[in-house]
């Protein structure tokens, strides 16, 4: 997490520095700018500077990934919302025959499955693995918020999913990057 923040700030800082440096370098050639006349400078220069300010402000936002769009959404029942936000639940299982989840490092949206499917968090996929349901380890079960396999199977059945012991599933591990503010 810290490494990612450091890399992100370094890249942003470098881009901001390049923009600032370019603006400063323009002073060296300020005579060139006079050629275009006041109106052109006012309109196009103004638009250019506005775009620059917008870009710099976007780059200097509080921590948010440079990649804007996630690759998909995952749906959670309302009762799990706080558990996901506070990291108590950091893994989900998806049957292997369902749609393939995005791979490591992808950004996704977490949505509350209440009909409207409202997004409540932005998270990053840390790891995707596969397992047979009966082989899922206790550690992974606790990450999913279950105490044992029976509980996982019962909950799955309640949501209309048959997860017998032989079913193969994706185990998607994730980390919440940004909470709310959508």
């Amino acid at each position: 997490m810290i490494k990612r923040k450091v890399v992100s700030w370094t890249v942003r800082g470098f881009i901001v520095f390049l923009i600032s440096g370019s603006v400063m370098a323009l002073f060296w050639y300020h005579e060139l700018l006079y050629r275009y006349g006041l109106l052109s400078l006012f309109v196009f220069g103004g638009l250019g500077i506005a775009a620059l300010i917008a870009t710099v402000s976007w780059l200097t936002r509080p921590y948010k990934s440079l990649r804007m769009r996630g690759k998909g959404s995952f749906y959670f029942p309302p009762e799990n919302l706080t558990k996901v936000l506070f990291g108590t639940i950091s893994m989900i299982s998806i049957p292997i025959d369902d749609e393939k989840p995005p791979g490591q490092g992808s950004l996704c949206l977490a949505r509350v499955d209440t009909g409207k499917r409202i997004p409540f968090a932005n998270f990053m996929i840390k790891d995707v693995n596969r397992a047979i349901v009966s082989d899922i380890e206790e550690e992974d079960l606790s990450r999913m918020g279950f105490s044992d396999i029976d509980e996982l199977q019962t909950k799955a059945q309640e949501s209309g999913l048959a997860l017998s012991g032989d079913v193969e599933v994706y185990l998607v591990e994730f980390e919440v990057l940004e909470k709310g503010r959508f």
Binding site: K100, G103, Q104, D127, N129, R130
Partner: peptide, 8 residues
């Protein structure tokens, strides 16, 4: 192989 396929 399944692990590689899950992430790529």
């Amino acid at each position: 192989l399944h692990y590689m396929l899950s992430n790529n």
